[in-house]
């Protein structure tokens, strides 16, 4: 099946009178690393949150893996999904946050096995075995029994990635995963993401790491003020931006 993993057509979203997304059109192909860049407040986080239905869109159409997000279509009528059904769809989409958001009252291992056990109803053994593999993959096999606070920011973010992967998602959303990190810790997180890209994961990455976007990204979208200003291959957009706003933004971050 070659349908795009994410398809967004004219997506609008407002908070009260503040229009944050003003018609987003884009497609994310399977296996693609899709980078989303733009100034603060341009609506990048909001768009990611719409994709896994943490926010409800006001108009337009948003689908993941061919299915509408947050709605069920029956004939030509749309029905809002119940909380439980929306939660079910979120399982298949992993999300990694700027501030890690690990569960502080649980050990690293418990963080990783919580959702597989509670949500997918896996046995502790199965969940644990996968967690061991995943922690090894992100280079933290020795830290299973540590609590999040005992880890560095880079380690915490790698645990967060392992936690998201434990649900075996078909799509991963990264919201500025390295922005809260000390510069010397950024590399270890990007390495894990790079490996994930090599393994063929579909990823949408909001980032200010232009080096990563250029090297790993397959497409790049520049968003400003709730619209897509420019999109293309990262190399092209970054070296030869077409729009004034893109140029102005890039001159500041590059």
């Amino acid at each position: 099946m070659n349908a795009p993993m994410v398809k967004s057509e004219g997506v609008h979203k407002s908070f009260g009178s503040l229009q944050v997304l003003k018609g987003i059109d884009l497609e994310v192909q399977r296996g693609e690393v899709f980078c989303l860049v733009g100034p603060s407040g341009s609506g990048k986080s909001t768009f990611l949150r719409c994709i896994n239905h943490l926010e409800k869109i006001d108009s337009g159409r948003l689908s993941v893996d061919g299915e509408l997000v947050g709605y069920r279509q029956h004939g030509d009528k749309l029905y809002e999904l119940k909380d439980r059904d929306a939660a079910k769809k979120r399982r298949e989409i992993g999300m990694v946050f700027q501030r890690f958001n690990l569960f502080p009252h649980m050990t690293v291992m418990q963080n990783v096995i919580e959702a597989p056990i509670r949500v997918r109803g896996e046995s502790a053994d199965v969940a644990r075995a996968r967690a061991v593999r995943l922690l090894d993959r992100v280079g933290l096999s020795g830290k299973a029994d540590a609590y999040p606070r005992q880890l560095s920011g880079g380690q915490q973010q790698r645990v967060a990635i392992a936690r998201a992967l434990a649900m075996e998602p078909k799509l991963m959303l990264f919201d500025e995963p390295t922005s809260a990190l000390d510069p010397e810790l950024v590399g270890e997180v990007l390495d894990v993401m790079r490996q994930l890209a090599v393994d063929g994961m579909t990823m949408i990455v909001v980032t200010h790491e232009m080096g990563f976007a250029r090297e790993v990204g397959d497409s790049l979208v520049f968003m400003d003020d709730g619209i897509v200003v420019e999109k293309g291959h990262p190399r092209d957009v970054l070296t030869n931006p077409q729009h004034e706003r893109t140029k102005a933004f890039l001159s500041k971050v590059l």
Binding site: A87, N101, V119, M167
Partner: peptide, 27 residues
């Protein structure tokens, strides 16, 4: 409890009640 906790838990597909019981209340 930090809102990010509810967000992370929901993003993992946990229901409102499970999020409350397993993530929010213990903290």
């Amino acid at each position: 409890v930090d809102e990010g906790q509810v967000e992370a838990s929901s993003a993992l597909g946990m229901s409102r009640t499970k999020t409350m019981r397993r993530i929010v209340l213990p903290q």
